[in-house]
């Protein structure tokens, strides 16, 4: 089995998507609705191991709802209904008896950075502590490793005791990524992470994601078409709650599309 822990794959080089393996995520006939109002309908596709899977589309196209369904956050959102099949590593997510264990395997990064109101150290040590890791040396190790991977270590190593919620926006977003990595996830979901982040930080985070691809599978929802172009192996285009098109990113950007709305969106004619 391919090791999926953070750092476990470091130095093994950039590994492309493993299309030959069974897909990490299988989505079949997924419908999402809020209080009867449909947000996403009839979506089916696969995401493969070690792939960066981009999802683009204008606001309200169902991108964020999709991510919420993936880790069953929908359980906690009143009025959110999910129908259809989502399998992660071959197991239907609805079958998990301990939904928290499922979520602990999936890292999530939000549009707006959320530094928890505790020290930077505690932010990153939160998930490992949930897993039962208590030894200080082990926690120190995880914190340093994850902050380094998130390109934040150098900036905060001297103030690990300061409040995570009072870091700058860009730092908080990298803190969120470090936190997601501390879960040692198999799957990383990013939802428009660059909205509240300056361009330089965005580029640094993008570099981090490229490196991480060799270790885990990434679903990248983005409002920036060019970001999908820079990062994603394959890209899906969502519009008004439907999946319009899915394809290799370079194909889409070369104009090899099945639906002309995709080109229109990519070229910026609407959005």
């Amino acid at each position: 089995m391919v090791e999926s822990g953070v750092g476990a794959g470091a130095g093994k080089g950039d590994r492309g998507p493993l299309y030959a393996e069974p897909p990490t995520i299988e989505v079949r006939d997924l419908h999402i609705a809020y209080g009867g109002r449909s947000a996403l309908s009839d979506v089916s596709f696969d995401v493969y191991r070690h792939e960066i899977f981009g999802i683009i589309g204008p606001a309200n196209s169902g991108k964020t709802s999709f991510l919420r369904a993936l880790n069953r956050m929908s359980d906690f959102v009143t009025g959110m209904e999910v129908r259809g099949d989502v399998r992660i590593n071959g197991k239907d997510i609805g079958d998990w008896r301990n939904v928290y264990a499922l979520r602990s395997r999936i890292g999530v990064v939000f549009p707006l950075p959320v530094g928890l109101p505790m020290s930077v150290y505690d932010n990153v040590a939160f998930a490992p502590r949930l897993r039962g890791i208590r030894r200080k040396s082990e926690l120190d190790d995880v914190v340093e490793r994850c902050l380094t991977r998130a390109a934040l270590w150098d900036e905060v190593k001297d103030r690990l005791d300061s409040l995570g919620s009072l870091l700058s926006g860009g730092q908080q977003q990298r803190l969120t990524i470090a936190r997601a990595l501390s879960q040692e996830p198999e799957l990383l979901l990013l939802d428009e992470f660059s909205i509240a982040v300056d361009p330089v930080t965005t580029m640094r985070i993008e570099d981090v994601l490229r490196e991480l691809r060799s270790e885990l599978t990434i679903v990248l929802v983005t409002n920036l078409v060019q970001q999908a172009r820079r990062l994603a192996d394959r890209t899906a285009f969502f519009l008004n709650g439907t999946l319009v098109e899915i394809g290799k990113t370079e194909h889409l950007f070369e104009g090899r599309v099945n639906d002309e709305r995709t080109s229109h969106y990519i070229e910026g004619r609407f959005g």
């Binding site: 602990s104 928890l116 505790m118 939160f126 949930l130």
Partner: peptide, 24 residues
């Protein structure tokens, strides 16, 4: 947002309440 951040890391509702909501 703090609660959601915790839930997304796999914290149970109670862990979220005890470690983030109550202390604050």
């Amino acid at each position: 947002a703090f609660r959601e951040a915790c839930w997304n890391m796999g914290a149970t509702r109670w862990q979220t309440i005890r470690k983030v909501v109550l202390p604050n």
